[in-house]
Every structure is written in C-alpha cells, then in structure tokens.
Computed example of a mutant assay.
Amino acid sequence: MPDDLPRPEPFTPRTSPAALEDLRARLRATRWPDSPEDAGWSLGTDLAYLRELVAYWADAFDWPAREAALARLPRFRVPLGGLGIHFVHARAAAPAGPVLPLVLSHGWPDSFWRYSKVVPLLTDPGAHGADPADAFDVVVPDMPGYGYSDRPTGPPLDSIAVAGLWAELMTVLGYPRFGAAGGDIGSHVSRYLGLDHPDRVVGVHRMDAGVPIFSGDPAELAPEERAWLDGAVAWGTTEGAYAAMHRTKPQTAAFGLTDSPAGLAAWIVEKLRAWSDCDGDIERCFTKDEILTNVTLYWLTGTIGSSMRMYRANAAIPPAQHARRVEVPSGFSRFPGDLVRPPRAWMERTANTVRVTDPARGGHFAPFEEPELYAEELRAFFRPYRTAAAG
C-alpha cells in the first residue's frame, strides 16, 4: 500500500454492561400509547406486537451473543474524507479463477447488517453448493452516519459523495477495478459509482431503480413507464410519510427516536414488515433476534438521526444528475416483495441494462431475507465481467 494512503485498522466493538442496563431500564419504563381496538398494523406499528418485541428485548435478547456473531465478519475502520468509515472486508476463501472485488452498499433502515448473511455465500461459493469460480472479495461499508461509521458533524453526505468515498476505499484496499451492487439508498450509491467511475466499475447490479424522477415530456414514456410513475406517486401518498419527515424535518423525529428504544423499534419494525416478502407476518422473514440485532445497532451507535439526514441530502441532488444514464453494464433483480418495481423500459432508459430477473421470493431486504437467492443473482450477473476486473 502506498505510504500516502490511509491504513485500515481491525475493528471489534465491545458494548459495556452499563449501556445494556440503561437500554433494559428504558425498555421496562416504556410509556405506551393507546390504540383503537383491532387497529393491528393499519395505522402503523401494531401495539400488541411491539409490546411483545420490547418485552423480549428487555428480558431475553442476548446482545453479547449477537455482537460476537457479527464479530466473526472481518471488520475494519479507516479514515476517509475526514470520517472514520467502518466496513467488512472478506476475501475469497478458495478462488478457482479470477476473483472479482465487489462493494455492496446498504440502505435505510439498515447497515452492514443487510449483507451479514450473504457475505460467506459470496466469498466461498464452493462451500455452499455453488461454483468456486464465482468467488468474490466482498467489501461492505457502513455509510457515513450509519452503524459504526462516523456521523458527519456538518452537512450530511449525499449518494454522490458516498460513491466517491467508496471509490477511494477500493483504492485503499488495492482494487483498481471492481463491481458495485446495492439496494435502497445503496442502489443510488452504486449508480453513481457507475456514472462517476466508469473506468473502474465493471458492472452495476441493483435491486431497484430508485424513486422515479422524470422532468421530460411524458409523451416520451412507454405506457408501462407512465403507469409506474403514477404508481410511485400513489405509493408515496399512502406509504411515504416517513420519507417526507426524513427529507424535511429529520431532527424533530430524531429526539424521540434517540431517547426511546421502543419508539426506535416502532419506526424500524414497521418498515421491515411493510417492505419484506412476509405477507404481513414479519417473523416469516426475520426472527426477533434478527430484528433486534438491526434495531440495537441503531440504538447503541445513536445513528437514527444521522441516517435519516441522508434523505435530506439526497433530496437536494440536482435534477440533471437524475437524468444521467449509466453506461457500464447494469443488471436488476426485481424481488416480488420490493417497493416500487420498475418496468424494463425505464431500466433501459436510465442504464445500459443487460440483465433483468424476477426472483421467486424476497423483498426490499432480499440479501437478508433470501441470501441464497440474492447471492445467485450476483454470481450470475457478474460472471461475464470477472476477466475485465482481473485485467
């Protein structure tokens, strides 16, 4: 590594007993709201389910065991752009050919947690019934203001700036060329990696095409594109209140969510249920331990406010940036339980789309919900580009 590049340092957090006791005390002292009879999930988070989850969190959830399990991933921190960035860096276990470096970008409300199940499937495919030649070196950073990465003290970073940080991170790790993949905000970051670093990115895989933004003549759009845009507006009306808050007044929500672990869980759990392929039963996709691992990461790192502020930064990205077309080879996996699934015409309009698939199962958090399916999607898409990265 050149002397002028920052050096990653191994990172293994250890939560103090005092922090866990404070968490449990707050959970046991929760002041519960009322709820109309039989409201269920129709007005937001279901009161009965959250009471059950919070009781488990306070008295049965074993965070030290979950923290130790996450510590089995090779994790590091490195200074980039004036911030300490936390990331997983897992190398291919037994490569049988060119190894493709791959940077995976997460979204909200998650962190490196989103990819914790899929990392071993990608680094050691031979041990999981797949072709050893499809092995990746996997890099999973926490975005600034998420997880164990530093929270920006000034203006939040948008997806363009984060893509620049990830390109720098891949340089620090010695990868001149690499693949990029992601979902949710991570789709935006992956897109800008392809747009701003096309000489380095061999391909971009996304689970979605982002919130549709189009400022041209609607007559230019195919009928399925117009229908998709209309559907996205309807979705925003019924499901988008959280995003409006994040874009406009994130600090207001941050006070309560940072102070109340039950409130934090309500804010996140409702999205895990609504956006996963669970048919209304959240524990079809996530166990209580898995849900609470994600929520506890937010609680202990105090990052719910800083994570929400990234929405505000992205809302300020100029329209001309949204109109740019990704020219590096692009692929999309449209999981059936995801939010607003784009038509192929839109994907081809906005990117050099070479592969589109519709997996049988999975939702917005498919890398965690269906890690085997997601891993196979990445193997298949990036297979033709391994030689390009090696060269």
Rank of each mutant, 00 (worst) to 15 (best):
G82H: 11
A68H: 11
P64S: 07
A71I: 15
V78Y: 02
A92C: 04
T45F: 01
P74G: 06
L83R: 02
R77F: 10
L53T: 09
E67G: 11
A90Q: 13
S42P: 13
A71T: 14
R66T: 07
A94W: 04
A48L: 05
R91W: 13
P74E: 06
A94E: 10
R66G: 03
W57N: 04
P74R: 04
A92M: 10
A71Y: 05
A92Q: 13
E52P: 06
D46A: 06
F61E: 05
A48G: 15
V88L: 09
P74F: 01
W57V: 07
A55Q: 07
R72V: 14
R66V: 08
A96H: 07
A94K: 12
L83P: 11
G84C: 10
A68T: 13
R51V: 10
F76N: 02
H89Q: 07
L83D: 09
V78A: 07
F87G: 00
V78C: 08
F76K: 03
A92S: 12
P79R: 10
L50K: 00
A93H: 14
V88A: 06
L43E: 12
H86F: 09
D46K: 01
V88D: 02
G84R: 13
Y56M: 09
L70P: 05
A48D: 05
R75I: 06
A93N: 03
L50F: 01
V78P: 01
H86D: 08
D62N: 12
D46T: 02
D46S: 02
T45G: 02
A71M: 12
L80A: 08
R72P: 13
G82P: 15
A69S: 11
G97M: 04
W63D: 02
A68N: 09
L70V: 14
H86V: 05
L53I: 04
R72Y: 01
